[in-house]
Design a protein around this nucleic acid. Sequence first.
DNA 1: GCCGTTTTCGGCCCGACTGTTTTCAGTCG
Length: 580
Amino acid sequence: MVLNDKSAVVKALRDMGLLKQIKGENSFKTRAYEIAAERIAGVSDDIGELVSKGKLTELPGIGESMAAKITELVTTGKIAALEELRAEFPPAMLELLQVPELGPKKAKILHEQLQVGSIDQLEAACKAQRVRGLKGFGQKTEEKLLAAIEVARRSSSGSRRRLSQVLPKAQKLLAQIKTAPGVVRASLGGSVRRMRETVADVDLIVSAADPGPIFKQLTAMSEVAQVLGQGESKASVRLYDADGDLQVDLRVLPDEDFATALHHFTGSKAHHIRLRSLAIERGLKISEWGVHRGEEKLKITTEDDIYALLDMDPVPPELREDWGEIEAALEHRLPKDLITEQDVVGNVHAHTTWSDGRNSLEEMARTAQAMGLKYLTVTEHSQTAGYAGGLKEEDLKRQWDEIDAVNEKLKGFTLLKGVESDILEDGRLDYPDSFLSKLDVVICSIHQRHSQNEEQMTKRMLAAFDNPFFMIWGHPTGRLLLKREPAPMRMEQILDKAAERGITIEVNGSPERLDLSAEHVRLALQRKLKLVVSTDAHSVSELHDHLPYAVGTARKGWARKGDILNARPVKDFKAGLRLH
DNA sequence: GCCGTTTTCGGCCCGACTGTTTTCAGTCG
């Protein structure tokens, strides 16, 4: 095995599909590559294992030909057919498709007629007014492309941004839209509603008899930089935004169409394609405008009605990715009790002014209590983390006195004594066992030496799990979304050992982390590992603000209430942390 | 390229919007 890298496989399949599109191949063929890429991206299995065990063709959407290409890539490091395809085009050909408004058909014409093979060449051709003469192009297209090139360049660092950079703005927009006259129902849609860890735009779906005032409400907002388009049922705008351009798509429909429209614009695309095929088998047709049986339009009041018509369990938005939820819903084995924010009774992983937090112990405790919680784990940084005000044994012992004093004052609320201990480069923790044994909660995290290779990192974790006081594995991969890749490690092997040792895994809700990821949450749950949804709060506001991201990520990984330790009362929480 | 209690051949999700168009193609979601 030369290249056991799932993301490399996904990229190769996507690129192959796109290049074939530009060549003008049959669109169903090219879509097969997209489907296969999405399927691989969504499976939680190790790609090398799928190849070596010959299980690729068991995945829906992957047949003999696709399996052979994937096997070729994993075993030899490249796909000959893809190399040949690449050789037919300039190296930067695919970057052209990053330009909005420019798809494979127009790219093909530009390449064939004007030898355009990069964004820079496209810009030159447009400025020279050589594009407007091409068949199917005109002056307006040329001008639009020039503007689109700017958009593509501005967002070239990746047009997606972290969910946390968009969700609060989206919620604010939704609140403002709801104040427009005539609004009946309104909701967020799209990848924001599905709680994807990174998102590209905002979708708003509104029902009202007259769309006019709603469009007006949106386009009149001061944050709107440009109105990109407006028709009878939808409008798109671009917002001024410190993080770069943010597109907002607003749909307004009669209330009888709200549920089907909301469902349609929530996605994902892959989920819909599967669902609509199933509908056809049952003599139904699903579109954004409703569910039809022949000419008859069926009455759909909620999204659940759509799944009921297909004899499926209702699928919560976070699960709509075609990651196996379709099959599970058809077999009525979709989890019914996914974790919710209301289920959480204890806040896990908090820092105070004792280390690098911004609020005192008592402020954190009172805020958590006001949120309706019953306990809070105080887990300051450990002595190795000098940069974060890490505490020595004597410091922590003094902190216990203050914790005892605050616990005296608070009724029906408990501060638990803990620490976030660094996992050193050889897997040791940075306090002696004799001290760790005195704590209620020991979260163990990696804060340095992220650059170890896969072998070293895997060994480090396996060794760390041998410590009898290792209770919770904190932000396991150390990733920072769009900033730092997850540390390389053999996650399946590590989770196997964690399960053996009875270790609890953190789903860290710090918006830059979301660590574990939803995909890894599923891997952990397959091994019956216990989880905590944590805030990693460094201030009272983060106690509130981070919880939705932890819960959303856990839900997206199919975690149920029973899987989450801090959905249990304090006594059961403490008991659950003990190793077997 | 994938897939099959309507098929191993002949289908493959569906519609809005825009611009180039006298009836449609391309792009997007």
